[in-house]
Nucleic acid binder design. Sequence first.
DNA 1: ATGAAAGCGCTAACAC
DNA 2: GTGTTAGCGCTTTCAT
Lengths: 316, 316
Amino acid sequence: MTVSRAFKRDARIHPDTRETILRIADELGYVVDTTAASFRLGQNDFVAVTLPSLNNANFADTVEGLSRVLVTRDLQLLLGHTNYQAETEERLIEQMLGCQPRALVVTGGPHSERCRRLLRNARVPVIEIWDVPADPLGFHVGFSNAQALERLVDHAVAAGYRRLAFIGGEDERDSRGVERRQGFRRALARHGLESHRLIPAGAPPIAMAEGARALALLLETWPDADLVMCVSDLCAFGALSECQRRGIAVPEHLALAGFGNYEIGRLCVPALTTVDTQARLIGERTGRLILDLLDGAPAVASVVLEPRLLARASSR
Amino acid sequence: MTVSRAFKRDARIHPDTRETILRIADELGYVVDTTAASFRLGQNDFVAVTLPSLNNANFADTVEGLSRVLVTRDLQLLLGHTNYQAETEERLIEQMLGCQPRALVVTGGPHSERCRRLLRNARVPVIEIWDVPADPLGFHVGFSNAQALERLVDHAVAAGYRRLAFIGGEDERDSRGVERRQGFRRALARHGLESHRLIPAGAPPIAMAEGARALALLLETWPDADLVMCVSDLCAFGALSECQRRGIAVPEHLALAGFGNYEIGRLCVPALTTVDTQARLIGERTGRLILDLLDGAPAVASVVLEPRLLARASSR
DNA sequence: ATGAAAGCGCTAACAC
DNA sequence: GTGTTAGCGCTTTCAT
């Protein structure tokens, strides 16, 4: 017991005793067994986070923001990725819950029924992020993907575009993409415009190559389109690159818009009109929510952020 | 005890009993408490990984490859990032070792003295990746960044380029960048060419914006350069975008080369000459090494991969 | 300031 | 095939 106290910061122990113990521990190469401590305390210092994909700058920004907050309490991130597969997510979440984390942060996706049950019965706070779930499992920090796309459509229609197309969002595994496409259709319907120019982009993750391919498909299918919205900036850049290869002037012949405010959209020529989802802020707010929960402080169950429209040169 | 058996694969238990238990557990949302199991068994299922940055497609590929191998044994990744800061790395590695992982994978960076001591005294295998360390701490899986750059220079010189410049690699916190710059200088010296056209890119992580800024600086400082090599494809794309904004034809007026075979380099116009570092393979080989170590199988201490040169349209 | 006792949830070993 | 027992190393609680 005295040894245990010697290794704690604020324990009542005689300085000499502590010093002796620490010295001997050092000689012996003794280190506190944190697995035993975690077990005894029924919890450890992990905050578990699931992501659809590791290779995504937006999610990386969120994790960065989350990490920045949690590191102030020496909390460790236990990261896992689902590859946009519900079964993988199920396995991952089960494994993570078994680790008894202090909180579980779940990024998007339609969850399997079993997964939803696991999350609902979890003995730790569950925070869904990057979305405003219709049927929340607990806490959530995010924004409305559909509404963000509606804003983008409103802006494009105000700028005079009438024959809008959308690339992506047809694969149910990417629920945020699906929502964006729904927002696209809803907004066009509201404006009394056609919303049938929909191009599939294939299985998530939707990257640049998919955008290039989808643009080629668009030119065949809906050559009359005057603006193409893409499920992400990466996809939009792929489309832009295909325009460049084909000598199609952007935005003169065809306008483009992306989603997510990735760095590529700021740097490419022309720069992409997009929506800033405030990825880092999502992480920071999630982190603060977790700290509030751990402190027993009052915590709002629903944090809804406002994505910001960024009008750039890829559309007029 | 029977419940415990029900959750184990090769336990002697009646199929009906197991089924009943699993069903009820599922209803209850019960999951095995792995902190207790880890404690009881004296070890857990973590493999800890440090990365300089989370927001990097190359590192993400490596983690993806590693994960794909480790998941076959239900090993979990404990991921942490250092933000290219030696002090952050020290804190991170200390915390990770406290978790008693089965192995510790360390990505790059110059380590602090204390950090090196921690790693050397670690009671679990330490694997350095993404480099061929001069003074290995244990195992390593990587490639020679310097040699990869030398190959790239050889190719450029063979193509007729004589006034080569290099962007990045001046900040010691990015040891791989430093190595690449050294390789650049060494190869030029070998060819009897000048190697003084060096442009700083600032603090890591070097992203696209830094590349754009550095290209502007290059045009002021070394306007005679005929080819610019960049510390990464991201940086090179930034430089390319700056060329596009300034109406500089690539590769006719100025040729470009990147590093890392990022997706952007394949899609942009013109596509980037680059080096494929086989990021995913690094992860897979690291995973297999770890499995060998856990199995007590003979494991090679040093895995050196061969980066592949990819000649594309951004240089002739 | 230090020590004694109990128990966290699991699993190896053994009994039936 | 299933149940019983014991104990992993720590920390909380209470006693001294």
